[in-house]
C-alpha cells in the first residue's frame, strides 16, 4: 500500500515536469519579459484573449516569436512594435492614446463632467423652485 502511494505521488510529480519539456525552453528572464509582453498582445484568432491565455495554435506560434525576438536582442518595445507592424493596433490589448482613440480615452471623463454639470444645475435651481408657492 505504501509503495502504491509513493508511486502515485511520483505520478503527480511527473505531470508538470513533462508539461515543461518542449523543444523550446528559454532563460527565466526572457520568459518573464515574454509573459509580460504576451499579456498585452491579443490572440488574433480568439479576439478577447491575450496570447498568453490562449490555447490557439497561432497564439502559441506568436508566444514563440516573442521569445525569439527577445533572444535576438529586441527590447520589449521593439517586440511590441514588430507585432503591431504586422497586425495593426488591433493586436494591442491596451489601445494606444492617438488621434483615432482620443474619443475612446476621453469619452468616459466627458460623460462624468457632463453629469456633474447636470447635477450642479439641478441643485442650484432647486431652492427657487421651492420658493415658488
Amino acid at each position: 500500500m505504501r509503495i502504491f502511494a509513493s508511486l502515485l505521488s511520483l505520478l503527480f510529480l511527473a505531470a508538470p515536469v513533462s508539461a515543461q519539456t518542449g523543444p523550446d525552453i528559454f532563460p527565466p528572464d526572457i520568459e518573464k519579459q515574454a509573459r509580460e509582453i504576451g499579456r498585452g498582445l491579443r490572440c488574433v484568432v480568439c479576439r478577447s484573449q491575450s496570447i498568453e491565455d490562449s490555447d490557439a495554435d497561432l497564439a502559441g506560434d506568436m508566444r514563440l516569436l516573442v521569445r525569439r525576438r527577445l533572444v535576438a536582442g529586441d527590447s520589449p518595445e521593439e517586440v511590441m512594435e514588430y507585432v503591431r507592424d504586422r497586425y495593426g493596433d488591433y493586436v494591442l490589448l491596451r489601445p494606444p492614446v492617438q488621434p483615432n482613440t482620443w474619443a475612446l480615452w476621453a469619452g468616459p471623463f466627458l460623460v462624468l463632467i457632463m453629469f456633474f454639470i447636470f447635477l450642479w444645475r439641478r441643485v442650484s435651481t432647486r431652492p427657487d423652485d421651492r420658493a415658488a408657492p
Binding site: V45, L58, D61, M62, L65, R86, Y87
Partner: peptide, 13 residues
C-alpha cells in the same frame, strides 16, 4: 508549419 511567414504577413485565418 509554425507560422513563421504567416505572422510576418499578419495572417489571422
Amino acid at each position: 508549419p509554425y507560422s513563421r511567414l504567416a505572422i510576418d504577413l499578419g495572417i489571422t485565418g
